[in-house]
Design a protein around this nucleic acid. Structure first.
Length: 891
RNA sequence: GCCCGGGUGGCGGAAUGGUAGACGCAGCGGACUUAAAAUCCGUUGGUAGCAAUACCGUGUGGGUUCGAGUCCCACCCCGGGCACCA
């Protein structure tokens, strides 16, 4: 009999029974509400799951199990993000083929997820590397291509000279390859992009309708980086170009930067968000690779050209990371050319400097050193004039520069002086527009999504290059373009894809039957994870990526759970694809994830020590991490134990297998739910786990002690039971707990839900203080409620307890308890009595005591009267059922 | 530098503007035991007091309010993200 929590005796039994019964097969009964609970698509690493990863899966599982018991049709699927660089790199390291390797790793994940009791419908599972899945990834690529949202252009990639391979941006940290540690070089290769910038505005504005953590939404807003400003054209004059001294202003052109033939006068277009500072322009800056530089070189003296060329060469060598390094002095070069400020006709020098980026705005700026910190630094370095044109107060002339703030008034700005910044921005933009040299414009920091990888292990891009150098999509009936089975998939090292070395793959025929060559790039892993949540609704469809009806019945995802590290990449890409599919009419919603939750990490005690003589700590490093064996060997005082994120490299990982062995799965689950709020970090501790084991033990014992009272038909007879004494007390506790646990799970407050169950258990033990035990039906209600309320959190124990009552089947199939507010209501209220806001007494009064009666009882209190002596009562605040505050003052 | 979070007992944490510290861990006292473990009961913010009780307490300083951990302003510290985007 189950008299204590002995997981070894029942866990495996229930795991097998759930499997035999296909317990978690998705129910699709008409007439029930639906709930789609999903966790981030994991890449199955060879290291397996730690109890840290479980923090993602357990809470989500609790919600899905609860929703099912509440009568929902629940979709709770799991699959694996198998394509991509992490898998390929690991396979290279192990000298195996990535396909079988990843499948093996996925199986391990699945076993571990089953171990911890996740309620996944495995019949819907897939790997993103399955041809039956990536066929449809290719189909969606074609849709993007056909809608003009996938294009190919020459672009710089991150090249790792040690590993001889291209790296994704996220594999480059601080300019160095994450794995090899080599300085990443720039390499120019034709690349595929998705035109996510076309959706920038919608991706930004639709954030407002999502129930996501504010921090994540903010990160996306920053990443998209919308800014409103003005783009306008400036005339460019060259030193030996006397003819162009005073030509008329040319109208603005459509293109981003307009370059005109020298005989008609050169112009440059700049973008600014601070058109109000236009009178403060003392120079202009072009990005080093700006096309106008070529024209300028034709009209400046030879020594200038040499300096320009030298600077361009130097700038080209620098990787982006070096360029963006903090606190770096700003190098640049004076071109010798000048721009004319349209506001005041002044001639200012044009510089080249790499602090201006060719990839943002027009690649050219008007520099206002008085009101921009970057321009200020540059002006100081090159001895350029710095002029104040905005002051905190109207008319104030002594402004401390740089003054970048936007709340101020114009000075030194001709007829615009005295206006506020906002007013001046409006008037000056209108003026530039009227002159037809400028236009208001919105720019985004967001860049197009670089999708191609010159690597083997990815979804092939379904494009053919014809003999006429056209690009054709592979016809639907030829999909999928299968990834060829090869022995050697190593990158060749020259920046081409390994697929390019396989003639049988490359050579094909185009739609007209002529010879053609396949695209040999593959898609980065983020493409595959941008639609997997749709496939789960209809995972075995071989006619289409999904049937619109099935997607309509399950999507959007009601609750999406994963780590905050995917705040921008995956979540932005998935939103983008969803909007494209919506625009194409494939689906009827344009946001995939209504609610998003980020779980906190799991930290473990990790040993560090102080640096020894001769050891130098790098910036930000506060100690030297040591192994547990080293820590053992050192004297206590020399080891500095800190909380650090669990990771294999730190040697502080606890696996779910270890936790299950030592404490049982249910203890693991309840611990992770209880020890801190869902979003917060938790600290792994064996003492904490022991506390949970104690709690589970007490549940088993209490139910064992009261099993003789169990009446399976209590629901039919309990309404006849007199509700008084210990029976009333018990039923009140039961119904209060049902209410609390239900609402806490609903709001992801699992820690307080567990606490409520612990409180409940304490009150069950207190029942022994009554002379008469509660009625057997009330006890039965308590037994059943307790088992069912813990079931989503500790499902193995719940089923074991349920069976120990003589009941058949699974708690998963029982209806979630409902609370009766009348039974939950307190018969007495505890009222706080304050004098001048300080607590002086608490009174116990019958529930429903009205305000005046409360006030009277408070004034009669002896403890209170002590504080009223010699005072005058000015006012009495009464919060019915809660509190009385008597405001007094000296007489 | 900018943008988000967050500072509450020895520790993890709880608290729709209304009794701060629920619940748990650790500690202390006791019961059971030959003993220990386990279990059970009690106790535990600080200071003073035999006690009743009083005073002080939610990072710091102000403010709003009958009443502030909670709202507002300024600042300090910690964690995370972004970082020359004109």
């Amino acid at each position: 009999m189950a008299s204590r929590y002995d997981p070894a005796s029942f866990e495996q039994k229930w795991r097998s029974r759930w499997k035999e019964a296909d317990l978690f097969l998705t129910r699709e009964e008409p007439g029930r509400p639906k709930f789609y609970g999903l966790e981030f698509f994991p890449y199955p690493s060879g290291k397996g799951l730690s109890v840290g990863h479980c923090r993602n899966y357990i809470p989500s599982d609790v919600v899905c199990r609860t929703k099912f018991m509440q009568g929902y049709n629940v979709l709770h699927p799991m699959g694996f993000d198998a394509f991509g660089l992490p898998a390929e790199n690991e396979a290279i390291k192990n000298q195996v083929h990535p396909g079988p390797m990843v499948e093996r790793y996925g199986d391990t994940y699945r076993q571990q997820m089953d171990l911890i009791g996740c309620s996944y419908d495995w019949s819907r599972s897939f790997f993103s590397s399955d041809p039956s899945y990536y066929k449809w990834t290719q189909k969606i690529f074609k849709l993007l291509f056909e809608r003009g949202l996938a294009y190919r252009k020459l672009a710089a990639v991150n090249w790792d000279p040690v590993d001889q391979t291209v790296l994704a941006d996220e594999e480059v940290i601080g300019g160095r390859a994450e794995r090899s540690g080599a300085l990443v070089e720039k390499k120019w290769i034709p690349q595929w992009f998705f035109k996510i910038t076309a959706y920038a505005d919608r991706l930004l504005s639709d954030l407002d309708k999502l129930d996501w953590p504010e921090g994540i939404k903010n990160q996306q807003r920053n990443w998209i980086g919308r800014s409103e400003g003005v783009e306008f054209t400036m005339r460019v004059v060259l030193p030996n170009d006397a003819a162009s001294e005073n030509p008329p202003l040319q109208p603005a052109e459509e293109e981003v930067f307009s370059v005109k033939s020298p005989d008609r006068g050169l112009t440059m277009t700049v973008f600014t968000t601070r058109v109000d500072t236009i009178f403060g322009v003392t120079f202009c800056v072009l990005a080093p690779e700006h096309p106008l530089v070529e024209k300028i070189c034709l009209g400046v003296p030879e020594e200038r050209v040499e300096a320009i060329r030298a600077y361009q060469a130097q700038a080209k060598l620098l990787g982006d990371q070096d360029r963006l390094a903090a606190n770096r002095e700003k190098p640049g070069v004076n071109t010798g050319a000048f721009a004319i400020n349209p506001a005041n006709g002044e001639k200012v020098p044009i510089f080249l400097a790499d602090y201006v980026l060719m990839t943002y705005g027009t690649g050219a700026i008007m520099a206002v050193p008085g009101h921009d910190e970057r321009d200020y630094e540059f002006a100081q370095a090159y001895g350029l004039p710095i002029l104040p044109v905005i002051a905190p107060e109207a008319g104030q002339l002594d402004v401390e520069l740089p003054f970048p703030a936007k709340d101020g008034f114009l000075i030194n700005s001709g007829e615009y002086s005295g206006l506020s910044v906002a007013e001046a921005q409006l008037r000056l933009s209108e003026w530039l527009e009227a002159l037809e040299i400028g236009t208001r414009k919105v720019n985004y920091k967001l860049r197009d999504w670089l999708i191609s990888r010159q690597r083997y292990w990815g979804c092939p891009i379904p494009i053919m290059h014809t003999q006429d150098e056209e690009m054709q999509t592979v016809p639907d009936d030829c999909l999928p373009v299968l990834l060829p089975e090869v022995e050697n998939y190593l990158p060749p090292g020259d920046g081409t894809s390994p697929l390019a070395l396989i003639p049988e793959f490359v050579n094909t025929t185009d739609r007209d039957g002529r010879l053609a060559q396949r695209e040999t790039d593959t898609m980065g892993g983020f493409a595959c994870s941008s639609w997997y949540f749709l496939r789960f609704a209809d995972p075995h469809n071989d006619e289409a990526p999904f049937s619109p009806e099935k997607v309509k019945s399950w999507l959007p995802v009601d609750c999406y759970v994963g780590g905050a590290e995917h705040a921008v990449m995956h979540l932005l890409y998935a939103r983008f694809w969803t909007k494209v599919l919506y625009d194409a009419g494939w689906i009827e919603f344009d946001e995939p994830f209504l609610t998003l939750k980020n779980q906190g990490q799991v930290l473990a005690q990790t040993p560090y020590r102080k640096p020894r003589e001769g050891e130098v700590l790098s910036v930000g490093q506060t100690g030297i991490q040591i192994t547990f064996a080293e820590a053992e060997a050192l004297p206590d005082g020399e080891v500095d134990w800190r909380w650090a994120r669990m990771s294999k490299s730190k040697g502080n990982v606890v696996t779910p297998e270890q936790a299950a062995e030592q404490f049982g799965v249910d203890a693991l689950r309840v611990f992770e739910l209880f020890v801190a709020p869902f979003e917060a970090e938790i600290q792994w501790s064996n003492e904490g786990m022991n506390g949970i084991v104690r709690f589970l033990n007490r549940i088993f014992r209490w139910i064992d002690d009261h099993r003789s009272a169990w009446n399976p038909n209590w629901k039919n007879s309990i309404s006849q039971v007199e509700n008084s004494g210990s029976t009333a007390t018990l039923r009140r506790a039961t119904h209060q707990t049902i209410a609390k646990v239900t609402s806490d799970i609903d709001r992801f407050a699992f820690n307080t839900a567990v606490a409520a169950l612990m409180t409940y258990l304490n009150s069950l033990d207190d029942l022994s203080k009554f002379d008469r035990p509660p009625h057997a039906d009330a006890l039965s209600e308590a037994i059943e409620s307790l088992i069912l309320l813990v079931a989503p959190m500790a499902p193995f124990s719940a089923d074991e307890l349920w069976e120990s009552l003589g009941e058949a089947g699974f708690t998963y199939h029982q209806a979630w308890p409902k609370h009766d507010p009348a039974l939950a209501a307190e018969s007495e209220i505890t009222v706080a009595v304050q004098v001048n806001g300080k607590l002086r007494d608490t009174l116990t009064l019958p529930a429903g005591t009205d305000g005046p009666a409360m006030e009277q009882a408070a004034l009669e209190s002896k403890k209170v009267q002590v504080f009223l002596e010699g005072k005058v009562v000015r006012k009495v605040i009464v919060v019915p059922g809660k509190l009385i505050n008597i405001v007094v003052s000296d007489a």
